[in-house]
Amino acid sequence: MTEAVRPPARKTAKGNQLMNGRRRAGRILFAMSAPFLIATLLFCYVPMFGWLYSFVNYKAGFSLFSSRWVGLKYFAMPFSNFVLRDEFLRVMRNTLITSGYHLLGSPLPLFFAIFLSEIKFVRYRKSVQILTTVPNFVSWVIVYSVVHSLLSLDGFVNHFLQMLGLTADPINFMATSKGVWITQWGYGTWKGLGWASIMYMSAIAGIDQELYEAASIDGADRFQKMWHITVPGLLGTYFVLLMIDIGHILSNGMEQYYVFENAMNHDKIEVLDLFVYNQGISGNNISYATAVGMFKSVVSLGLLFFANNLSKAVRGDSIF
């Protein structure tokens, strides 16, 4: 806009001076912001060169350039080596199942919000909303501590069951390979459900009240109104969030699985993000871990574009 207004001023000598002044000012501003731009360069762009490590045979202590170039060896490894292939397939299975549970559970916040908004007792509704969002603001370590205090051998549940005489020996809920995926999904839902529903709550507040009134006059009961007005009114929001989830199918995050990982559940809990950490940072397989991480990043970016295009095709609107 400013550019459109400025040009006529250029014709006079004074206008020229003004133009130069603004240009200089713009450069001064740029110089002032340089520290932040350098930070962005160092922390976001420079690491991209680290992808080169996946093409060399990197050994700790050597530099990138003194390492031997091996081309796509590390990318081919999950296909050529039986042990690595099984391991990679196991990790992929864990990742996809974990994401699958997440996608299956994705309508829950929507229904949580619809049912909560059906409650007319405002104080109660607000309290539920505030209290159920608390778990979202504690870290996964705290969630682990919470689960530990409830479900460990010395936890609340075992002591309670023993007090009631229902079990003689404590049940080890945590160090088990049974039901790992569903319990991890449960912890995630416990932590995130209330928070995720807030977005739907405000979307519900944005639905035109006249629609409900018109429906009432036509004789619709509350369930019909919920199903035919509220649900369609939230589908747009749901779709956007679903697309973002699809972009994150390979990125389950790592904190949750890192804190809950133990010798018993390791084989089922190790998702791609955790695998990259275990290989690269703990195991010092820098090159292989970088290759796997790079594979993940590229596929994720592809999924993101896929989801965006899907959104364009279905809703006529991109999500980014």
């Binding site: 160092l42 922390f43 976001c44 420079v46 690491p47 991209m48 060169f49 680290g50 992808w51 490590y53 790592m254 993000d273 990259v276 950490y277 690269g280 940072i281 820098i286 871990a289 970088t290 991480g293 790079m294 993940k296 990043s297 970016l301």
Partner: peptide
């Protein structure tokens, strides 16, 4: 985009 855990660590 992000480079991933390992490249970030190396940086």
């Amino acid at each position: 985009f992000n480079a991933g855990v390992v490249p970030l660590y190396l940086t």
